[in-house]
Computed example of a mutant assay.
Amino acid sequence: MSIRKLTIMALLVAIAVAGSTFVAIPTGIARAYPIQHAINVVSAILLGPVPTVAIAFVTAIIRILTGTGSLLAIPGSVIGALFAALAYKYSNKMWLASAGEIVGTGIIASLVAVPYAKLLMGTSVAALFFMPAFLMSSVTGAVLGIIIASSLRKTVFAKQFTN
C-alpha cells in the first residue's frame, strides 16, 4: 500500500470523525451519522474493499473513544463498508456501491446490532428496533457518497487511487 493511499485513508477517517461531530441525528439508543456512510461509499469506489473496511473500523474506534459514537458504530459502519466495497468491486457501478452500503448497514448491520447491543451494552430490543435509524442514516449517506464520488472520479487526483 502506497503512502499516498494511506494518506487518503487518513484524510477520509478525519473527515468521517469530524463529520460525526457536526452531523448526527439522535434516534434513541443509536445515533445516525450519514457522513460515515458517505465516506464508506466514496472509499469503496476510490480505494477498494480492504482500505474501505479499515477506514470504517478506525473511524468507529475513534468515534467510540472520543464519545461521538456508541459501540454500535462498529457494526453500523464496518458491515456497510464491506458490502459497499464488494458490490463496487464486482460490478464497477457506483449505484451498487450505494445499494451495498444501504443493505449492509440498513438491513444486515441493524439485525447484527440486536445481539451485539444485548451482549456489549446490556440493552434488549426487538429485532427491527435499529433498522429505521440505520436505514435513514445509510440512505442519506449513500446518496451523498454517490454525489461526492461522481465528482471526485472526474478529477485527475482520483485516478491515482482507483483500484
Rank of each mutant, 00 (worst) to 15 (best):
S2W: 01
I3M: 15
T7K: 00
I8A: 11
A10M: 01
A10H: 06
L12G: 02
V13T: 05
V13W: 01
A16H: 07
A18D: 06
A18S: 15
G19L: 03
S20C: 03
S20D: 05
T21D: 01
T21V: 15
F22D: 02
V23R: 00
V23W: 15
I25Q: 10
P26S: 04
T27A: 15
T27D: 08
G28R: 05
G28L: 06
A32C: 08
A32E: 05
Y33T: 15
P34W: 03
H37F: 13
N40G: 10
V42A: 08
V42T: 13
S43V: 13
S43L: 12
A44R: 03
I45G: 04
L46E: 05
L46N: 05
L46M: 14
L46G: 11
V50Y: 15
P51G: 03
V53C: 08
A54Q: 13
I55G: 11
F57P: 10
A60W: 11
R63G: 07
T66Y: 09
T66L: 14
G69R: 12
S70R: 07
S70Y: 12
L71I: 12
L72C: 09
S77H: 12
S77T: 14
I79R: 05
G80Q: 01
A81T: 11
A81P: 01
F83D: 03
F83I: 02
A84S: 10
A85K: 03
A87W: 10
Y88A: 07
K89C: 04
S91A: 09
N92I: 08
K93C: 10
K93R: 15
K93Y: 07
M94F: 12
M94Y: 13
L96P: 00
A97H: 00
S98E: 02
S98Y: 01
I102T: 05
T105L: 00
G106A: 06
I107F: 09
A109S: 04
S110L: 06
A113C: 00
P115V: 13
K118A: 14
K118Y: 13
L119R: 01
L119K: 07
L120T: 03
T123N: 09
S124K: 09
S124L: 00
S124F: 08
S124C: 02
A126E: 12
A126F: 07
L128S: 11
L128C: 09
F130D: 00
F130G: 05
P132Y: 06
A133F: 08
A133E: 02
A133H: 00
A133V: 11
L135P: 06
S137V: 02
S138Q: 02
V139A: 02
G141T: 06
A142V: 08
A142N: 11
V143G: 01
V143H: 00
L144M: 13
L144W: 10
G145F: 07
I146S: 14
I147Y: 00
I147Q: 05
I148S: 05
S150W: 12
S150P: 07
L152G: 03
R153K: 15
K154G: 10
K154P: 03
F157V: 13
F161G: 00
F161L: 03
T162I: 15
